[in-house]
């Protein structure tokens, strides 16, 4: 066919413009996600920080938008908030340690020992619990920890009482919930470790432990840290699991929640919410140098 292409149709002209100006193309592509990142994501964080310096009027309950450090002074002066912060960090650290200990052998088996077929099934098995609702899993643990639950049933014949609801139950439940987030980065990290290195270590006479210490671990550390960022930060902000299996314990998240729901004191809730943010920033800065962030 000999149809003549009419130059200068609006669509065509626009396409030409985009072709001639790559910057325009880039801007059009990136403006939406950037807008999201800057306005919705960083913007809300900034709003959070700003709100932390405001107060509520005792009399009217309205937020008073006037800079003052009262909320932070309150956080510092009341020992209860220090206790809660330390408790939350302790729980997050314990969850991370448990997850690392459980996930490492699992990930190593998946990456190095299992057949490719088994490997695929194992990855699916690790991911499957993520399809179930968080609440369903937390309540399942609640039932297991209850006085008539399966844990008591197992432990009672030995004369041991189950831990019941409390911090240990919270740590176990959180460790269960976040385990896939630890396994997957370690698995990915170990997969990149060439098998030849392990063979070489063996050929040079290194025993299992030495191979682990000098060959596997150094390669896996960034991956472990990458996983720990997930487990640590997810545990630090959690307030639902501790409500369900935590008995009478409360963590930072509960204080934030109570200040929004019960006390209607948004500025103070914002001030409390900055604690985990600060802790995570310190943590991230510390691990940045290990190269772990490249593994995320």
């Amino acid at each position: 066919m000999s149809t003549t292409v009419t130059p200068g149709g609006p669509v065509r002209r626009f396409a030409g413009l985009l072709h001639r100006r790559p910057y325009l193309r880039l801007a059009a592509l990136l403006s939406a996600p950037l807008l999201w990142l800057v306005v919705a994501y960083l913007g809300s964080l900034a709003a959070l920080f700003a709100a932390a310096f405001w107060t509520t009027d005792d009399f009217t309950g309205e937020v008073v938008k006037q800079f003052n450090l009262g909320n932070f002074q309150e956080l510092w002066n009341q020992s209860v908030y220090r206790t809660i912060t330390l408790r939350s960090v302790g729980v997050a650290a314990a969850v991370t340690v448990i997850d690392t200990a459980v996930a490492f052998p699992m990930a190593f088996y998946m990456a190095k020992i299992a057949s490719p077929r088994a490997q695929r099934w194992l990855v699916i098995a690790v991911l499957t619990p993520l399809w179930a609702s968080y609440l369903v899993k937390a309540y399942a643990w609640r039932i297991m920890f209850s006085g008539s639950g399966v844990l008591s049933w197992i432990l009672d014949p030995f004369g041991i009482h189950g831990p019941g609801y409390g911090l240990p139950a919270t740590i176990v439940t959180l460790a269960y919930l976040w385990l896939p987030y630890m396994i997957l980065p370690i698995y990915a990290g170990l997969e990149r470790l060439p098998n030849s290195l392990l063979d070489a270590a063996g050929d040079l006479g290194a025993r299992t432990f030495r191979t682990f210490r000098t060959v596997i671990w150094p390669v896996a550390v960034p991956a472990v840290i990458a996983g720990s960022i997930f487990t640590f930060s997810l545990s630090l902000g959690d307030y639902i699991t501790v409500k369900i299996v935590g008995g009478k314990s409360q963590l930072i998240g509960n204080v934030v929640y109570d200040n929004i729901g019960a006390a209607d004191n948004l500025p103070f809730a914002a001030a409390v919410a900055t604690i985990p943010v600060v802790i995570m920033v310190i943590y991230l800065v510390a691990v940045r140098r290990t190269g772990a962030l490249d593994n995320l």
Partner: peptide
Amino acid sequence: FVPKAKSFTRLACAAA
């Protein structure tokens, strides 16, 4: 029974 802090403020206004 999520506590109703606002009622406090309302009543406080009323009290005012």
